[in-house]
């Protein structure tokens, strides 16, 4: 691995993003608009809005970065740039961490905007600080990037890549405790829920909702999510082969 090459790769990915103004606009504006939708849905019910919006601030970056990354990586494979990159001094982890870094930065910007809109425009209230919400959102985005990089190895076409969203992302959203409290689920469902990284991100956000200072549960959850992201990146590296049939 080389820091220089990793940074050059992250810079290249951000430059690609910058040329695609529509994607940038969608990335930055859509989460805030969806939160506004929630605000009007839960009109007059401040407590429910606070609970759901807080969790959504973690789920949006996860879903969006998963999608963006799996398509971006698939493009590297189908246009031949990946094959070419693998004949250069670039290491596999340079490429994967480059993606993590670039989309992590994009997620930081996205998270700051969405969180700012939620607190200032939509009156979101949490006991803990908004800065922690952004931090959790960014770690979640990196998890989305890592899973997207991993899953793109199993897709040959963009149609297939998009299908991984319902397979990999939706179950995590269903089982994370947003719809049904996890302790009310049957044992085996709760067991599955315990094994899914998004569960921990949602729990960390809930901790920010109820506690003024960061709790040890929140830090533990954040470490679990970050650890899951690193494992997914390493698995993604294992699926990147320099030699192909």
């Amino acid at each position: 691995m080389s820091l220089h090459i990793t940074l050059a790769t992250a810079g290249r990915i951000l430059r690609q993003l910058r040329h695609d103004r529509r994607t940038v606009a969608l990335l930055l504006v859509v989460p805030a608009l969806l939160l506004a939708l929630l605000y009007f849905m839960y009109d007059g019910s401040g407590a429910t809005f606070d609970r759901v919006a807080l969790i959504m601030l973690g789920i949006f970056p996860f879903v969006i970065m998963f999608l963006v990354t799996s398509i971006a990586m698939l493009r590297e494979r189908t246009t031949g740039t990946l094959e070419r990159l693998l004949t250069t001094p670039l290491g596999k982890l340079d490429l994967l961490f480059g993606y993590g870094l670039a989309f992590g930065l994009a997620a930081a910007l996205q998270g700051a905007l969405a969180t700012g809109a939620a607190y200032w425009l939509l009156g979101l209230q949490t006991t803990g600080s908004a800065g922690l919400v952004v931090l959790i959102a960014v770690v979640n985005a990196v998890l989305g990037v890592a899973l997207g990089l991993f899953c793109s190895a199993f897709a040959r076409t963009e149609f297939q890549a998009v299908q991984f969203l319902p397979v990999v992302v939706v179950p995590q959203i269903l089982l994370c405790g947003l719809f049904v409290p996890r302790e009310q689920m049957v044992g085996w469902l709760e067991g599955i829920s315990n094994a899914l990284p998004l569960t921990y991100a949602v729990e960390a956000l809930a901790q920010v909702g109820i506690s003024a200072d960061p709790t040890s549960t929140m830090w533990r959850d954040l470490v679990v999510v970050a650890g899951a992201a690193v494992i997914a990146l390493v698995l993604a590296a294992a699926t990147l082969r320099r030699r192909t049939p």
Binding site: G11, R12, D20, T88
Partner: peptide
């Protein structure tokens, strides 16, 4: 097939491949 990034300029492509070396 030209394996360069279609969503980058010629110069940005060349500078990236230069940076890799």
């Amino acid at each position: 097939a030209p394996s360069v990034y279609a969503d980058l300029s010629v110069r940005e492509n060349a500078r990236y491949f230069a940076a890799l070396r």
